[in-house]
C-alpha cells in the first residue's frame, strides 16, 4: 500500500482537478470511456511491468500492437480465418516474439534495449509488408467478437462496465497472484533486484527472464487485438506508434523501477489510469490548448516521479536514524 500511495494521490488529484474544471467529466459515458481506455493501455503496461521488474525493457510493444492489430483483421477478413483460429494464432505469434526476445537476451547476452529496439523496427516493417501497407479493418463484420472490446455490462440505464475493463481486472488479478503468491513471482523479483544472487541461489534466471518477455509480448498482442476490435481498423504505418512509451510511462508511474526488482500490479494499473485521465482532461478543459498535451503529460509524470523519490528518501532517512 505504501508503495502505491504516491501514484494513488496523483490519480485522485488529477481526477478531482478535472472533475472541477472539465465539462461533464463525471458523466457516466465519460467514466465508461475512461475505464475502457485505461483497460486497453493498462494491459500493455502490465506486460511491460514484468519485463521492467527483471531490470529489462521492452521497446517493441507498439510494433507488436501494430502486428497483431493489423494481423487479426488481415487473417479474418482477407484470409477468412474464423476468429476461433485467428485469435489463438495471433497470440501464439506474439508469444513466439517474446520467446525470441528472451532467448536473444539470455542466451546471447544481448542488451534488452537493443533487442527490442530492433523488434520495434522489424515487426512494423513486417506488418507493412504482409498487409502491403493497406489499412486493415473488419468492414462492419464480426460485431460478436468486437463486442468484447467495445460493449459493456450495463448496470444502470446510463452506466455499465466495459468488457475490456473486465479483461483487465482478470489479467491484473492473475498477474498479482503470479508475482506475489507463486514461487516464480518471487524468483522474478529476486532476479530483478540482484540477478547474480538469485542465480547463485539456484534460480533458473534465464528461464524467468524469457518468461517475462513472453508475458510482455503476449499482453501486447492481446492489447493490439483489443485495440483494433475497439477502433475498427488499423493502419500498418502508424497503428500503435509510441504505445511502448505509454506503457513504460504507466509502469514507471506505478512504481516500477527501471533498475529492476520493484513494481506492483495495482500501481501499474493506476499509472495507466493517470495517463488516460490526463489525456481526457486536456480535451475536456477548454483553456488547455490541445497541442501542448505532450508537455502536460510529461510534466505530470515527472512531478509524480520526483515526489515519489522524495518520499522514498525521507523514509530511508527516518530508517537510518531509527
Amino acid at each position: 500500500m505504501k508503495k502505491i500511495l504516491g501514484i494513488l494521490i496523483t490519480l485522485v488529484a488529477v481526477y478531482v482537478l478535472t472533475a472541477m474544471v472539465g465539462d461533464n467529466f463525471l458523466s457516466a459515458y465519460n467514466q465508461e470511456k475512461l475505464l475502457e481506455r485505461t483497460a486497453l493501455f493498462g494491459i500493455l503496461s502490465i506486460g511491460v511491468a514484468f519485463v521492467i521488474i527483471t531490470g529489462g525493457i521492452d521497446l517493441s510493444i507498439g510494433s507488436v500492437v501494430c502486428l497483431t492489430g493489423c494481423g487479426l483483421p488481415w487473417l479474418m477478413v482477407k484470409h477468412e480465418w474464423p476468429p476461433a483460429i485467428a485469435v489463438p494464432m495471433v497470440l501464439v505469434v506474439a508469444a513466439l516474439i517474446g520467446l525470441s526476445h528472451g532467448l536473444l537476451i539470455t542466451k546471447l547476452n544481448l542488451q534488452p534495449f537493443v533487442v527490442t529496439l530492433c523488434g520495434l523496427l522489424i515487426y512494423r516493417g513486417l506488418t507493412r509488408g504482409f498487409t502491403e501497407d493497406q489499412t486493415q479493418g473488419f468492414g462492419g463484420e464480426f460485431s460478436g467478437l468486437r463486442a468484447v472490446a467495445n460493449e459493456k455490462i450495463s448496470l444502470t440505464a446510463e452506466f455499465g462496465i466495459p468488457w475490456t475493463w473486465v479483461i483487465l481486472v482478470v489479467i491484473a488479478v492473475m498477474a498479482w497472484i503470479f508475482l506475489n503468491k507463486t514461487i516464480y513471482g518471487r524468483y522474478l523479483r529476486a532476479l530483478g533486484n540482484n540477478e547474480d544472487a538469485a542465480r547463485f541461489s539456484g534460480v533458473n534466471t534465464d528461464r524467468m527472464i524469457i518468461l517475462a518477455y513472453v508475458f510482455s509480448s503476449m499482453l501486447a498482442g492481446l492489447g493490439g487485438m483489443l485495440f483494433v476490435m475497439n477502433v475498427g481498423s488499423a493502419q500498418p504505418s502508424n497503428f500503435g506508434n509510441f504505445y511502448e512509451l505509454y506503457a513504460i510511462a504507466a509502469a514507471v508511474l506505478g512504481g516500477c523501477s527501471l533498475r529492476g526488482g520493484e513494481g506492483t500490479i495495482l500501481g501499474v494499473v493506476i499509472g495507466a489510469a493517470v495517463m488516460r485521465v490526463l489525456y481526457n482532461m486536456i480535451n475536456l478543459v477548454t483553456w488547455i490548448p490541445t497541442h501542448i498535451e505532450f508537455a502536460v503529460v510529461g510534466a505530470v509524470i515527472l512531478v509524480a516521479v520526483i515526489s515519489d523519490e522524495l518520499v522514498k528518501r525521507a523514509a530511508a532517512r527516518r530508517r537510518v536514524r531509527g
Binding site: 523479483r189 529476486a190 533486484n193 540482484n194 547474480d196 544472487a197 538469485a198 547463485f200 526488482g261 520493484e262
Partner: peptide, 13 residues
C-alpha cells in the same frame, strides 16, 4: 560468494 552485496544477499528483499 565473495561479494555479499552483489552476489550473496538480495539487499532490497
Amino acid at each position: 560468494p565473495e561479494d555479499r552485496k552483489t552476489q550473496g544477499a538480495i539487499l532490497d528483499m
